[in-house]
Structures are given as structure tokens and as C-alpha cells.
Design a protein around this nucleic acid. Structure first.
Length: 702
DNA sequence: GTAGGGTTAG
């Protein structure tokens, strides 16, 4: 395979900015975009604390070992508190050469002695759960036995709503019959965590500190995971830091909870550092820890990372369980490896692990996205014949898969199944999937039937369903219906997002006169600046490129990243369809300057390639013309050219795909450029140097 | 959910 020379800013040849060699061989291929960002951030790392302090001690403390964390993740005063913190000897075992970052022993569970009152106390908890808060004090006085330590703990354990747990806990404290120990706080905190009440949990933790009640690993892991679930990650990190500063070493539960905190923050390097330190301390990570790592690498799109997880599990002889398999499958999907997902699934089956809804959802999604119709349908058959579990998310994923593969009849059958099912009723996701299918297949009538049906059965149209419907009506040139649907949607609470705006803009690009104005008046309600730019582009002859660039920049800055290129594509189409070719070229230029078309040109010694896969038809035409004129200049300057030139439009594997390839082919024909569509490689056009040079010299496009 | 950690949808 020819080495691609990427013009992307992420072209870096080594992981040299990595602070220390990763435990796995540095990837042979280029680090991907997100990975590079991670490596890059490490170079911004704050300097380590003064080394003299560290040199005095032979055994670096846990705080020092983790100091890269506190210097990157905490505010500047983290350094100070670290240096001022307690003597480290309390948590360094002097007989051990290497101090441990985690304790290999878990907390011992307290054993319950048999309580003959257990049934009554459970009943009592239920009563408390069900009573009004205003009745609480009256009900609690009716406790059937003496409120001893054991009895109250049993009741507390049976309480569900966090309000009740807190009320009961406060009542127990007010009785003042026995010292309220750590376990009472832990049980109450757990209930509060279910209610996502971080502030209450933190208040209890501070109360424990104030009263001198010990916080143990269970307390800390509960606090940390509650902060995590509430998305208060700085608090999660805070409490972890606080824990080791008090001299308590995390056990593997707290440790993997913290790994997950850093993983969710996207701090891949920190997670790996913690992981390695744990391993060096003799930790044998369990499946939960590996699930955390696998999820993180999947989110980061880091295939090497996933391979590393698999390799680590193998070398440590840790069998993945169902959750780990599910996470790995998801991750394989995220990094775009459908084949590996398939073989992992087969491996899992051979080991006798039965898939659940999540497993199947992940796989169906992967096969649908990859357009692997055969595998998707086979799996669907297996699901049915094996009676594997199905839930509404899986149903909706199957519908989306049908949309991806253009399986209209199958989707209709499934949708009818859902309607007649007692358990699984179609929701807005299901309707969106169906609208997507009818929209892509160009079946306006059925799409409109669904639209009307939705308001009848009381399912709200969401912004994505609205986008599908608008696209469908636009393609069918039913502009009056489009306007009606758009206004009705906005009135019923749909908030137009960038994708919907992009969809309206694209409809406007292929409509003429009145119709275009109607569509633009809808767009005006959602994004007036975008419409102003369209007017600037199409109405004012005197508008210069600098004005356009500034306006466009302002719009791009307030547009989500994934919608930026589509915006530019549509604007180019609008210009071309109005015969404003110079404007179209200006827009392509501006788009390239703003990085909307990375990898548009790739070059090797043998071959130069134009990649137009992510361009609209108009943008692809513009890019081809632009390329030809720049090649003409290169020829004039007598620079070296490769033997082969190619253009890649993509094969358009989607059943409903719009056919960029054929549009490109006809433009090639119109210009009479000597590119030939490849018969072996779908979506590729090739020209030899000789043919192209001859054409360029006789056509003088420069 | 029986004092603590991990996985499903454009």
C-alpha cells in the first residue's frame, strides 16, 4: 500500500511527546487525531515539584507518584498543599521497596447476625418509603422494636427515596442512643447517590470529618462515583486527592472508580499512568477495570488502545465477562472495526457467554453503519431463533439499521410488530427511524402519513424526525408542505439545530426562485445570519471576498463542528446553481483555509489524489476545476509530477445514496478531462500524467 | 439496591 502523505495537521511521526514510553509498543501507524491531542496535552504539563524534596526520601509517596495528576488536574495551590501535606511515612510501608498506590485488600464486609425482627423492620421501611414526608415523624415513632444499632441499620437499608433516608438518618442521630458509625453514613450516602444528591453527600462527608468519624474506602468510592454520575468531575478528583492526603490508600474498587473518572474526562494518559502504577504495585485488574479502559479507548477512537486492553487481559489471564464483551464490541464499533467486532462476538458465543440486549444493540448498529446487510440480517435471524432478549432500544436500533441498509419492507414489518406489541410501543425514536427510511427512499406520501399519525397517537416529532421529513419534502419539491411542516414543528417545540439548518440550506440550493425564497424564509427563523450570507453571496455584485470571509467565519464559529462542512458545501452549490462560479471557488478557498476540507489533496511520489468523498456535487466540481488550474500552473513552472492522478468520490454504498460518482463522471465528461472511471476500484477516477499534461496544455485553464 | 467500582440510541 502506498504511504499517504497527509496534509492534515495531525501528521506526526512519533509519540515522542509522550511523557514515558507506553506499556505497549508505540503504534507503527500515525497516532490518530484524538490521540495526538492527548499526547500534545502532556507537553503542556506543569513542571514537577522541586526535586530536592523528593530526593530526600527514598520511597516516593503516593502524592508524589500521582503528582502529575495534581499538577495537571488541580489548581495551582495543589502543589502547595501537596508539599505541606502530612508526613508520608504514615502510608509508606518501609519494608517494601516499592510503595503501593493501591491496597490489594478489600474492606471486610461486616457480618449481620440473625435478627428475628427482620420481617417487621422490612415492613416498617416500606411504610416509611410510602408515607408523605409530612407524616414522616409520626410514622417513624411507630418503629416496631427498640431502635438499636442493628435494627435502625436494617431499616435504613430498606429505604429507597433519598429524602426518606436522610430524614431517617437524622432521626437516628437525634435519638442519641448509640454512636453513629461510618456504616450509617455509607448506607445513607448510597441512597443519596441514587437520587444524585451530591451536595447532601458532601455535607455528610464534611460532617464525618468534623465529628472525627472515619471515612473508609466505601465512603470515598461512594462520594467519588456520585460526583461522577452528577458530572461534577472536579469534585470527584478533589475527594480522591483528599483521600490519599489523609493517608488512606485506595483499594481496587476506589481505584477503578477513579480510573473511570479520569477516563470520562478524556485524560487517557493519566488513566494509563494510574493503571501502570497499579500494576507495578502488584494489582491484578479485574474485568471492571478492563471495561473502564475499553470504554475509554473506544470513546477516544483509539484502536491501539483496544488492542492493548485485549492483550493485557490475555497475558493476565482475565476472562472477559458479558459487560466487558459489550464494552469491547461498542469500542470496536467506535473505532470502525466491524470485522473485529464480528469475530469477538463469535469468540464470546464459543465461550458460552449469552448475549443480552446491549450486545445485540451494539452489533446491529455496527453492521448497519458498515452496510453489512448479510451479517445484520443473519444476526437478526439468530436473535429470533434463539429467543435472545429484545428491548425497545434494540428495536429502534434494528429500525435504524433498516434505514442504513434501505430495508423498507423489513422496517415496516418491525414497526407494525411494535405497534401491536403490549410491551414495546413505538416512540419518537422509532418514528424518526421510519421517517428516515421513507425520506431516504423518497416516499413522501408515507412519510406524511406518519407525520399525521404521530400527532394522533401523541408522539412528539423531534428535531431529527423533522429534518428527515424536510429533506424528503424538499427532494420531492413539495415546498408548501415543507413550510407547513417546519412551522408546525417549531410551534410544537422543535428547536432547529445546525443539521436542520443545513438541510434547509441544501433544499434551497436546488430550488429556484419562489421556492428557494420560501425555504430561505424558514431558515431565516432559525438562522438569520446564514440567510444574510446567502443574500450577500447571491445579490451583491460588489461584495468582496474579505467581507464574505468575515461573515462566513462568524457563522462557522457559532456552528457545531460536524455541520460546518455541509454549510460550506451547500453555499457552494447555491452559487453554482446561480451561475456564480467565481463565488463558488472563493467559498471553496475559504472553506479550505478554515480547515473544512482536510485531506482534500493527498500526494505520494507515484500518485496525487483529489478526495471529494465528503463534498457536495457542486463543491466536487469546483474542487476538480480548482485542481486542474493549479496543475496547469505547476506545469508552467515545470515542477515534477507523479505518473498517476486520481480522484476519489467514494463508492456510495448506501442504497439511497445520491450518486456523487455519476455527477462527477458527467462533469469530467463535460470538461473532457482525461479521467477514466475505474472498473476495479469503485468510486475512483484515474488519469495518467501524459494524458493530463496534454489536456492541460491544450486547454489552458490556468 | 441490601455499606463501594464497569456496558445499550442519530
Amino acid at each position: 500500500m502506498a504511504t499517504k502523505i497527509s496534509i492534515s495537521p495531525y501528521h506526526h511521526s512519533s509519540a515522542s511527546s509522550h511523557r514515558q514510553p507506553p506499556p505497549f509498543t508505540a503504534p507503527a501507524q500515525l497516532p490518530n487525531k484524538k490521540r495526538f491531542t492527548v499526547f500534545c496535552s502532556s507537553s503542556k504539563r506543569a513542571p514537577s515539584p522541586p526535586s530536592a524534596v523528593a530526593e530526600e526520601r527514598k520511597n516516593p509517596s503516593l502524592a508524589e507518584q500521582l503528582s502529575p495528576l495534581s499538577t495537571t488536574l488541580l489548581s495551582d495551590n495543589a502543589n502547595k498543599t501537596q508539599l505541606l501535606s502530612k508526613p508520608k511515612s504514615t502510608w509508606v510501608n518501609p519494608t517494601k521497596p516499592k510503595p503501593s498506590v493501591l491496597s490489594l485488600h478489600r474492606h471486610k464486609r461486616s457480618t449481620y447476625s440473625y435478627n428475628p425482627q427482620v420481617k417487621d423492620l422490612r415492613e416498617f421501611s416500606k411504610k416509611l418509603n410510602e408515607c408523605e414526608e409530612s407524616e414522616f415523624l409520626a410514622v417513624v415513632e411507630g418503629i416496631p422494636t427498640a431502635p438499636t444499632r442493628e435494627n435502625t441499620l436494617l431499616v435504613l437499608n430498606g429505604l429507597k427515596p433519598w429524602q426518606k433516608s436522610l430524614l431517617f438518618f437524622n432521626w437516628v442521630k437525634a435519638q442519641n442512643l448509640f454512636p453513629v458509625e461510618t456504616i450509617f453514613y455509607n448506607v445513607t450516602m448510597k441512597s443519596l447517590r441514587f437520587g444524585r444528591q451530591f451536595q447532601h453527600i458532601e455535607d455528610l462527608a464534611l460532617e464525618m470529618i468534623e465529628k472525627g468519624i472515619e471515612l473508609d474506602n466505601i465512603t470515598y468510592s461512594t462520594i467519588i462515583t456520585c460526583a461522577k454520575r452528577c458530572n461534577i468531575f472536579d469534585k470527584a478528583v478533589d475527594w480522591f486527592e483528599r483521600m490519599y492526603k489523609t493517608g488512606l490508600i485506595p483499594d481496587e474498587v476506589t481505584y477503578s472508580a477513579v480510573l473511570d473518572v479520569y477516563a470520562k474526562l478524556g485524560k487517557v494518559e493519566e488513566v494509563l499512568s494510574l493503571y501502570e502504577k497499579g500494576r507495578a504495585s502488584g494489582w491484578k485488574p479485574d474485568p471492571i477495570a478492563f471495561a473502564v479502559l475499553a470504554k475509554m479507548f473506544g470513546e477516544a477512537g483509539d484502536y491501539d488502545g483496544i488492542r492493548y486492553v485485549l492483550q493485557e487481559m490475555k497475558s493476565l489471564d482475565v476472562q472477559p465477562n458479558l459487560v466487558v464483551y459489550n464494552t469491547l464490541l461498542e469500542a470496536m464499533g467506535k473505532v470502525g472495526k466491524p470485522g473485529l467486532a464480528r469475530s469477538l462476538f463469535e469468540e464470546m458465543m464459543e465461550l458460552g457467554v449469552t448475549p443480552n440486549e446491549k450486545t445485540l444493540t451494539a452489533l446491529i448498529k455496527i453492521y448497519g453503519r458498515a452496510r453489512w446487510a448479510k451479517d445484520a440480517l443473519e444476526l437478526w435471524e439468530r436473535m429470533k431463533s434463539n429467543g435472545w432478549p429484545v428491548d425497545f432500544i434494540l428495536y429502534n436500533t434494528l429500525l435504524s439499521m433498516c434505514a442504513d441498509l434501505g430495508l423498507v419492507e423489513e422496517a415496516e414489518r418491525l414497526f407494525e410488530d411494535m405497534k401491536s406489541s403490549q410491551r414495546i410501543k413505538p416512540d419518537s425514536w422509532s418514528y424518526t427511524a421510519m421517517l428516515n427510511i421513507y425520506g431516504s427512499a423518497g416516499n413522501v406520501d408515507k412519510a406524511m402519513v406518519l407525520f399525521k399519525e404521530m400527532s394522533k397517537v401523541g408522539v412528539n416529532l423531534n428535531v431529527m424526525g423533522c429534518t428527515c421529513l424536510i429533506q424528503c419534502l424538499g427532494r420531492a419539491k413539495k415546498i408548501d408542505d415543507l413550510v407547513k411542516v417546519f412551522k408546525a414543528s417549531v410551534n410544537s417545540g422543535v428547536k432547529p439545530d445546525d443539521r436542520l439548518c443545513g438541510c434547509l440550506l441544501s433544499v434551497a440550493s436546488y430550488c429556484d426562485g419562489d421556492d428557494a425564497n420560501k425555504v430561505l424564509s424558514c431558515l431565516e427563523l432559525a438562522n438569520p445570519k446564514l440567510v444574510a450570507l446567502v443574500n450577500l453571496l447571491t445579490n451583491e455584485e460588489i461584495t468582496n471576498i474579505d467581507t464574505i470571509r468575515e461573515e462566513f467565519k462568524g457563522i462557522l464559529n457559532s456552528t457545531s463542528v460536524e455541520a460546518r462542512r455541509p454549510f460550506c458545501n451547500c453555499l457552494i452549490d447555491i452559487c453554482r446553481n446561480r451561475n456564480l462560479h467565481v463565488r463558488a471557488h472563493e467559498l471553496l478557498y475559504i472553506g479550505s483555509v478554515y480547515g473544512l476540507y482536510p485531506g482534500l489533496h493527498t500526494k505520494t511520489e507515484e500518485e496525487w489524489r483529489l478526495n471529494v468523498r465528503s463534498l457536495s456535487v457542486g463543491a466536487a466540481h469546483t474542487a476538480l476545476e480548482e485542481w486542474m488550474s493549479s496543475l496547469a500552473k505547476i506545469i508552467q513552472q515545470q515542477e515534477t509530477l507523479p505518473a498517476l492522478f486520481s480522484a476519489n468520490t467514494g463508492a456510495g454504498t448506501h442504497k439511497f445514496s445520491q450518486g456523487l460518482g455519476s455527477a462527477f463522471a458527467s462533469h469530467v465528461e463535460k470538461l473532457a478531462v482525461p479521467f477514466r472511471e475505474s472498473e476495479e476500484k469503485a468510486g475512483f477516477f484515474f488519469a495518467t500524467r501524459e494524458d493530463l499534461v496534454e489536456w492541460l496544455q491544450s486547454n489552458a485553464v490556468a
